[in-house]
């Protein structure tokens, strides 16, 4: 049964409007988050905010210097685990034609992306925190590193596969070994895309809080030791946000502004790197 033509046309219009509405509906929270983070975070921003440690409970002022350093160290640790691991698995999947095992690894890698980060935190807790006898920066770095692996693996594999076969053949025809071909010809050709993937992975773990709750744990003092609890920007935001102190809540917004800026810059730069000479 067919409706009349004017009705069908009207319905078509209505649905088009609904789709537009959906786009607008998704943009509202994004702009609300960005605007409120800026508006409420800006008052907290000052030079001392970046260079001072948190003040004891009850005193106002203080900064997030330890959290910034902590997040920096954690990212460094995470990258030194996640990047080589992901690169090697990605190379294996793309270059060594692994067949059945490859399918399993690829599938598992995709599934791993969806594992809740808090579960990764629990895993690292029982693997490292319990055995080492306490919360530590190392455990936090390992947790974040594990979260990075699937993203890096996936982007490495995809980018390597985009390199034309003729390039590999040319290299092999010149007498290069397979290893030389991969490391000197294929990998450099794919580097912008892989770099993009790594930066996006870093952007993601920079904001991760859940896996750090019982690995890095947080620290109100200055510490860069690997075997001690360490502060991190997202942890600091969480503690401050749920605190009853007005000054801390303002600082939570300030720290959120710093974190969001960091993550957005990483995201935008990552895409620029890719679009400049990728694809």
């Amino acid at each position: 049964m067919l409706h009349s033509y004017p009705f069908r046309k009207l319905l078509n219009r209505a649905v088009t409007v609904l789709m537009l509405l959906a786009v607008v509906l998704a943009l509202i929270p994004l702009f609300s988050i960005l605007w409120h983070t800026f508006e409420r975070g800006w008052p907290a921003i000052s030079p001392t905010f970046f260079t001072h440690l948190p003040k004891p409970v009850g005193e106002t002022g203080g900064g997030i210097a330890n959290a910034l350093a902590g997040t920096g160290l954690l990212i460094l640790l995470a990258s030194s685990i996640g990047v080589p691991f992901g690169l090697l698995v990605g190379i294996y999947l793309a270059e060594f034609n692994p067949g059945g095992l490859g399918t399993v690894v690829r599938f598992l890698n995709d599934v791993l992306t969806g594992i809740p980060s808090i579960v990764t935190g629990m895993f690292v807790y029982s693997l490292l925190v319990l055995t080492m006898g306490g919360f530590s920066a190392l455990a936090g770095g390992v947790a974040l590193g594990l979260i990075m692996i699937p993203t890096v693996t996936r982007s490495t594999e995809e980018m390597l596969k985009m390199v034309p076969t003729s390039l590999r053949e040319a290299s092999l025809a010149l007498g290069a070994t397979k290893t030389q071909t991969i490391l000197r010809v294929v990998l450099p050709a794919a580097i912008p895309g892989i770099l993009t993937g790594i930066m996006l992975a870093v952007a993601r773990v920079a904001g991760e809080t859940a896996p750090l709750l019982f690995t890095a744990f947080g620290n109100r003092f200055w510490s860069l030791r690997l075997d001690q609890p360490i502060a991190a920007l997202p942890l600091q935001i969480f503690t401050y946000a749920i605190s009853p102190y007005r000054d801390w809540q303002t600082q939570a917004w300030g720290a959120a502004l710093v974190l969001v800026t960091l993550v957005l810059v990483l995201n935008i730069v990552a895409r620029l790197v890719f679009h400049r000479d990728g694809r």
């Binding site: 988050i33 859940a210 946000a241 959120a256």
Partner: peptide, 22 residues
């Protein structure tokens, strides 16, 4: 697409902060 993907880039804890206060 870029703007919608940005929604995924915002850290969970910032969502929480926004959720709690806004």
């Amino acid at each position: 697409s870029f703007v919608v993907e940005l929604l995924a880039a915002i850290p969970s804890v910032v969502y929480g902060l926004w959720g709690l206060f806004v």
